[in-house]
Structures are given as C-alpha cells and as structure tokens.
C-alpha cells in the first residue's frame, strides 16, 4: 500500500516510461553509451512499480561492482533487503566484479540472446571476478527488462 502511494507521489510510473524509452534508445544505439546507468535506473524503478519483478530481490543481498578498464566508469549496485542502491564509487567485498572495455561490450555480455558473448570474454572485452551465479542472476533481470522494453 505504502509503495503504491509512493509510486503516485514520486511519479514513478511516468518516470518508468521515460526510463524505458532511454533503455530502448540505448539498446538501439551503436555505442550503447550510458548503458549501465540507464539499465540500473530502469531496474530501480521497475522494482518499485512491478511486484512480480520485485520478487527477484526479496531476501536478496548482493554487492556488484562494474568498472571499465580505464577507471572512468565505476558503478556499484548493492541489493539489500528488497532494495537496490546505485552509487558511482568503488566498493569492497563484492560478490562479483565486472570489468569491461566499453559499454557496448558490457551490454552484449549481459543481454541475451547475443551471439558474441564468447568473443566478449575471450577478447578480454569483459572479464569478471567472483561468483558467476550472481552475474547470471543480474543478467536474467537485465534480460527481463530488455524483453519488456522490446516487446512493447
């Protein structure tokens, strides 16, 4: 109930539509600039407005760190008690850390179906350190959003 009220007060559904559009543009763009930022913003909003999707993070505690190779992009995503907090700072004790060459490579790596996942890994475009299962879960949630946006 509280969440429903907050959705109205905070214009979450309106912001969600805007975030979906941004995500769609990102998916279609050549460079996939700001992919991570756009993805995580959309993810945060969908967690608020979509009860079924929120179920993904009930009782889910996890720390993700995404960094590009030159260090100009650093994004931490922390899931804690049904909430997602995103910050642009390095965090310790991550469950998985993903290092990517550019955001296009990261997008190809995370979203399925993409035929070049292997090449992204093998060409060192994306590497990860830590628990692969956390990455798989994150990729599932991201793919769900991709399908949600592209099937509209």
């Amino acid at each position: 109930m509280l969440n429903e009220i907050l959705n109205i007060i905070l214009f979450r559904k309106f912001r969600t539509n805007s975030a979906k559009n941004n995500f769609m543009k990102c998916l279609q763009s050549e460079l996939a600039e700001d992919f991570l930022d756009v993805l995580l913003k959309l993810m945060s909003l969908i967690f608020c407005v979509d009860k079924h999707f929120r179920r993904n993070i009930e009782n889910f505690n996890a720390r993700y760190l995404f960094m590009n190779k030159d260090g100009s992009i650093t994004v931490a995503a922390v899931f804690n008690n049904g909430k997602l907090k995103v910050s642009e700072q390095k965090i310790d004790n991550t469950d998985v850390t993903v290092i990517f060459k550019d955001e296009r490579a990261l997008m190809n790596f995370i979203l399925s179906p993409k035929p070049d996942i292997l090449h992204a890994m093998l060409n060192q475009e994306v590497t990860f350190e830590g628990n692969l299962n956390y990455l798989s879960k994150f990729a599932f949630m991201a793919t769900h959003l991709q399908l949600m946006v592209t099937k509209q």
Binding site: I110, S112, P113, L132, S136, A139, F140, T143
Partner: peptide, 10 residues
Amino acid sequence: ALTIWPELET
C-alpha cells in the same frame, strides 16, 4: 544448471 539463468525467458 545455473548457467541458463540469464536465458530463462529466451
């Protein structure tokens, strides 16, 4: 089995 997690919907 968890390696198909990203693909459950596809």
